[in-house]
Write a protein that binds this DNA or RNA. Structure first.
Lengths: 333, 333
DNA sequence: GCGCATAACTAAAACGCTTAAACGCACCGG
DNA sequence: CCGGTGCGTTTAAGCGTTTTAGTTATGCGC
């Protein structure tokens, strides 16, 4: 067995001080007076002997765990990984650790996970989804302040941080307009999804602002796959008066659109310009030519979630937040 | 403030029992005798009153945290997400929770993260990388049993679980051979990487076994991008006697190879068959035609890591493990 | 030389559980 | 009626911290 680490008691005894003094010194507390000399001596001894505070015991005594629960269906996917990272960074800044439960979308894992998190006495819960959707939270989350990321819920008191889909659609379309395109097709997601509705209204706003007529024939929708992207783009490009710019609501769909264009001998961006959405590196950056696309502000969303949790804990009243993404310029426009 | 949950003490008092009895009953201990009636009464009351054990206090008292540290550069990427999921599943099976630190490859985050994990008294550490490589572990990991996943280290005592690259390369090449191809090109990763070396020797073994001559001209290498994949594949296809089958060491490279083939008017798989490696859903499944590729056994690797940690804790001597992936058949052969 | 701040530190009670050891009691054989 | 044996439960000692409420010295004014 490895030398099992010394306790604060050991350290205090070694220094001929009381546990209390050591605790005060180590925590650098200013509301209690410890001579500078003693403080330094304690800190030095702690470092030298490799003393490690026992976070669990601290939690028990101090009545706070510094733990934030993070439940998500993200990790195994390329979507929204930034949320975790942003959340972790924000948590660390507050000396808190993220306790992550990766549900892979399985409600049972989710429920069990939340239970485990509550047993660990997490101070708050972040519930993040990879797709912008309406989520059904396990009932147990009631027990603790919760912030939803990338999703909403009808559960009262649950606050969300969401990407600004409208602004994203607007930015994408504006980019095509700026490149001189006047007939712009929209390869959209299936109707009803927040992402679909939002991106479309951004698209429409941009066109309207540019003084263009909205043509229903230029808007198609389907699921988020490359195959569907191919089909929808093909139909648009086969129109008598085809668009010269394509806004695809998903990088995956853009991937399909590339194929449709190439099959027709159309060069990107010379003959048809394409803007995607999601900035999935693996697709966007490696498509040929590389895809200009809209990146959702995932990291910022993660940060916001943790900050909102902190604000809630501090007794502030917290409201939903919407964060805007940014256009990533590459070579497809 | 929310009703802050009742303690085991409260529960015991409510039942007119001692804390010890409640503890025994709730933990279903068989080494101590509690009447069935009492046990049932306790469990019922606990459920009814919504009693939640305080995991932190349990850890302190029982001298085990049931926490496993998981340090990785994976989450924000599409690679190896399965490792986390497998590890989590295996951990849960043992009533342990994963404490994940997402380093994004930043050594400073990694070091701080490990410190935090040690403060939480994790019982072991899993260190997982998204790329098969040699890792430099923060010094602090010495303090605790550690298992490396998808990487190796020179640090003594650190055990690894690795994918069988050779077997993967062998399977991919065999698939092409089975389809009748006799001239098979290898679009490989840069030399020196374990993935590159392994996949290549699998490729060579398959060819040799099939009684074919190894032709150095059919093997090209470069970095893992689609662009490089395009370049290397193009050179192979422009050979006087071009290969009819292409084994790409990466799905991304296969993505580039597709472009090279299409540009030359070659149909996949009729004119040239392609097998990838990695099974990155987003690329492999949505490429047209969908890519046949080798999937690394990530989930199993995660499971293995946690099991090895458990074995170590149980005092067993643990050795490196190698797990083999599987061929995912789609439409490119 | 006394009373009093003040600075520096200590004692001890939590925090919510686990667990080894002790306890009381009913039952049994003799 | 007595000693032993199990069974069901309790007592109490931790686990490693934090924190409240002290307790000692020391210096200072008068």
């Amino acid at each position: 067995m490895r030398k099992s680490g010394l306790s604060m008691d050991d350290l205090a005894r070694h220094l001929g001080l009381s546990r209390a003094t050591v605790s005060f010194a180590l925590n650098g507390r200013t509301d209690v007076r410890i001579s500078e000399a003693t403080r330094a001596r304690v800190v030095a001894a702690a470092r030298e002997l490799g003393y490690r505070p026992h976070a669990g015991a601290q939690s028990l005594a101090a009545q706070r765990t510094d733990l934030i629960g993070f439940v998500t269906d993200i990790p195994a996917s390329p979507f929204g990984g930034g949320i975790i990272h942003g959340a972790q960074a924000a948590a660390w800044r507050r000396h808190k650790l993220l306790l992550i439960v990766s549900s892979e979308g399985d409600p049972e894992i989710e429920a069990t996970g939340v239970e485990m998190l509550l047993d660990r006495r997490v101070e708050g819960l972040v519930y993040a989804t990879q797709m912008h959707r309406v989520a059904t939270l396990p009932a147990a989350v009631e027990a603790v302040p919760t912030v939803l990321v990338h999703c909403t819920s009808d559960r009262p008191g649950a606050v969300s941080v969401l990407p600004d889909e409208v602004e994203g659609g607007y930015a994408a379309t504006r980019r095509l307009l700026a490149a001189g395109h006047r007939r712009i097709g929209l390869v959209n997601l299936a109707a009803g999804l927040p992402a679909s509705t939002g991106r479309r209204s951004g698209y429409e706003r941009a066109l309207t602002e540019a003084g263009l007529e909205l043509e229903p024939a230029l808007v198609r929708q389907g699921d988020a796959t490359a195959t569907t992207g191919y089909d929808l783009a093909a139909r648009l490009l086969d129109l008598a008066d085809p668009p010269t710019g394509l806004f695809c609501a998903t990088d995956r769909m853009a991937m399909g659109a590339y194929d449709a264009a190439k099959e027709r001998g159309l060069r990107i961006p010379e003959d048809v310009a394409v803007v995607g959405f999601d900035n999935q590196e693996i697709v966007a950056a490696y498509l040929r030519p590389a895809l200009t696309t809209v990146a959702l502000p995932f990291a910022e969303m993660g940060v916001a979630a943790v900050e909102m949790l902190a604000a809630t804990a501090a007794g502030e009243r917290v409201l939903d937040r919407t964060l805007t993404g940014r256009l990533v310029e590459r070579a497809s426009v």
